[in-house]
């Protein structure tokens, strides 16, 4: 017979072991639940016909309105070009299939997807919250919203409030023009708006010292930053996430697209695409 003192460590070990076993059971149950939930979702939505079709035919059919350089356009030789084309070709290569492109007017893209004219839409497509029950969207691969760029060779502008008393260049009548007016009004900023008719004139206004900052969209910003000492101030002023769309049952397809986008975002592939295609975008 052992003494209570001698039994205590053994009891503690036993209690801890029981606890560990219980936690293991809870964890196992949780994993089973998650797996079943996912299976149930897959069963409810049905098999991903898109994924099967792409791999059986060895072709990824991509719908786009090829009239949006630098995202997509058709060159003089009739070839599809642009960031979205590069993205589609990279996806196709990753899945060991060929990319095939269909040029459809933007208004008809969703209907064409629905009627199986192609497998995915990759077309500088903004996320549309009204359609999330009709199609599946991937994660965003670019926020194309408006940004504020400031000269790095002038007194720094660290935030929007730093624009007070400064001159900001915009394209006359463009979204940036309205946004600059709105910022001045809503935030009470004393802002001199330097409006120019063309994008290159906006950049010239900066170069001539007629403006301290510029408001433009993220795509134009890439090009401006290649050609002038500019830095983006803060996060984008507006959000315009661009996404890839597939049919509602294309769960595997979208999962695989998201995995690719996450990987390419980490390893710099996406950034490389943007630098390559956006550098002359105005």
């Amino acid at each position: 017979m052992t003494s209570p003192q001698a039994r205590r460590p053994g009891a503690l070990r036993s209690a801890l072991a029981t606890l560990r076993r219980r936690w293991l059971w809870v964890l196992a149950a949780l994993l089973v639940f998650l797996w079943l939930s996912r299976r149930a979702a897959d069963v409810a939505l049905g098999p991903d016909a898109t994924w099967s079709q792409v791999h059986e035919s060895k072709v990824l059919r991509v719908g786009m309105d090829a009239s949006y350089p630098p995202f997509e356009w058709i060159d003089a030789e009739g070839r599809f070009q642009g960031l979205d084309v590069a993205l589609a070709e990279a996806l196709a290569a990753r899945w060991d299939v060929e990319a095939q492109f269909f040029d459809v007017h933007f208004d008809g893209l969703y209907d064409a997807l629905r009627t199986d004219k192609f497998d995915v839409i990759i077309s500088a497509l903004p996320h549309d919250r009204m359609l999330t029950r009709d199609v599946l969207y991937s994660h965003s691969y670019l926020n194309a919203g408006q940004v504020l760029l400031a000269r790095t060779d002038a007194p720094p502008i660290a935030s929007l409030e730093g624009l007070d008393g400064r001159r900001v260049a915009v394209e006359l009548g463009a979204q940036a023009h309205q946004l600059a007016r709105q910022l001045a009004r809503d935030r009470g900023l004393s802002l001199e708006i330097v409006a120019r008719q063309e994008s290159n004139e906006v950049l010239a206004a900066l170069a001539e010292g007629a403006a301290d900052a510029v408001i433009c969209d993220r795509v134009t910003a890439y090009a401006y930053m290649q050609q002038a000492p500019l830095v983006q101030v803060g996060p984008p002023l507006t959000d315009e996430p661009l996404v890839i769309a597939a049919r509602l049952d294309a769960t595997t397809t979208i999962r695989e697209i998201n995995a690719a986008l996450a990987e390419w975002s980490q390893d710099g592939t996406l950034e490389g695409f943007k630098r390559r295609w956006f550098q002359d975008s105005f």
Partner: peptide, 16 residues
């Protein structure tokens, strides 16, 4: 239309 990138668009001042 005065979209900044659509090939069938014009600059905003032209649109006016």
């Amino acid at each position: 239309n005065d979209h900044p990138r659509w090939t069938k668009a014009v600059r905003p001042y032209e649109r006016i």
